[in-house]
Write a protein that binds this DNA or RNA. Sequence first.
DNA 1: TTCCTCTAAATCATCTGATGTGTTCAGTAT
DNA 2: ATACTGAACACATCAGATGATTTAGAGGAA
Lengths: 229, 229
Amino acid sequence: MEETKSLVEQTSDQIIHFITENDLEIGDRLPNEYELSDKLSVGRSTLREAVRDLASRNILEVRQGAGTFVSDKRGIATDPLGFSLIKDQDKMIYDLFELRYILEPTMAALAAKHATGEQIKKLNILRDEIENSFKNNTEEHVELDIKFHTVIAEASGNVALLHIIPIINESIALFNKNYNILHLKIETIELHKDITKAIENHDETGALDAMTIHMANNRKEFKRIMEEK
Amino acid sequence: MEETKSLVEQTSDQIIHFITENDLEIGDRLPNEYELSDKLSVGRSTLREAVRDLASRNILEVRQGAGTFVSDKRGIATDPLGFSLIKDQDKMIYDLFELRYILEPTMAALAAKHATGEQIKKLNILRDEIENSFKNNTEEHVELDIKFHTVIAEASGNVALLHIIPIINESIALFNKNYNILHLKIETIELHKDITKAIENHDETGALDAMTIHMANNRKEFKRIMEEK
DNA sequence: TTCCTCTAAATCATCTGATGTGTTCAGTAT
DNA sequence: ATACTGAACACATCAGATGATTTAGAGGAA
């Protein structure tokens, strides 16, 4: 059971070590390929593969001609669940809606139970911002809506939910962007109000119901549009 | 706003395209570096960087001397949700149990609706293997139990669930290993039988109930042990 | 036959040097 | 001041040689 790391992997580790050792901050530049491969005593192609590895893990960012920098994404992977690999993207969106449908009503009920004053304040602010974004017809409502659901996840007090919900919603937004299917509707505004109010009143069943209606409406709308295609 | 993808990135895309095009399944081998770089008309180092990228995203697995294979991790990053960073691990496990409790009963019902004969066969085999592992007192039952739940996720027909369920269960197993809290119990064997049978009979509410009991038992047991501590 | 050992082929790993492409910035002309 | 230009710099890509590891199969022993 020998755990022999390849030279490239060792080099990845050493680069990370170099970053922490020299207190490199986000955006700082690393030495160029020749210097770094020399310093770490590996060939350039080995170094390049190590850098490529770290770049694809969003730890480094490489810009041709400019240099290699510490990424501002703090090593948080894009599409960590590999949703983009799935072939049938229509089905993928549908499945994500279904998953949301399973999770979010219960999550809203938990949020009604545990939400702090701070979190309720955040929800009210976000709800208003979403409404304004809708009235002014800007495109940022997608982003705001993700934040809205994320705050509810946070309020649920369940750390696992807090980690999963943004990924689901961001994936939906990502695929939706490709297809341009779903749009914010006036009912959504009202439902956001209902959900916020129920959570504010610590009304668990109220939050459950409001979120269920929200999810059902979303899925219904999605189905309708898919049938039109 | 030109979006010029580098040759390496294009090559990554092409490799993924090659995989889907040729219906390569998990574990299948890709052509060797020389052939593939030739086929895609890129230099070998370019190809290697593309492969390195896909490998670090858990889409490919490279084994020196053996070849390059489609990874069994479905492009899912290791600890994709950053669970290992969370401080309060006891709460983390509890939250994961809660999340499972929300997801798995509905998932089992979906599985009862959609399961194919092949999947039912797999479930029966796994159920027996888990029982044997229990009788022989081996430690592989943890691994087998994760597979059992993963096959149910697969049978549910929901791709998003299939991606998320293994992560949740592996995280629980991981933390459980550190704490050595939970052990397989004789009731679990019986519940696995109930769940399998309900799915086999396409009995949706039966599967829902059986899985609910399974989840409730698990959480109850977890709570009991935590209180003893 | 069956099992083991050892070798040769296949495959990835690494190094090196040459050449291409994009970025940055200082110097210069307007 | 502004805009152009070119040199220096940094990453991108290719090609070829050599090393290390795995695997499968040949050949022999029990």
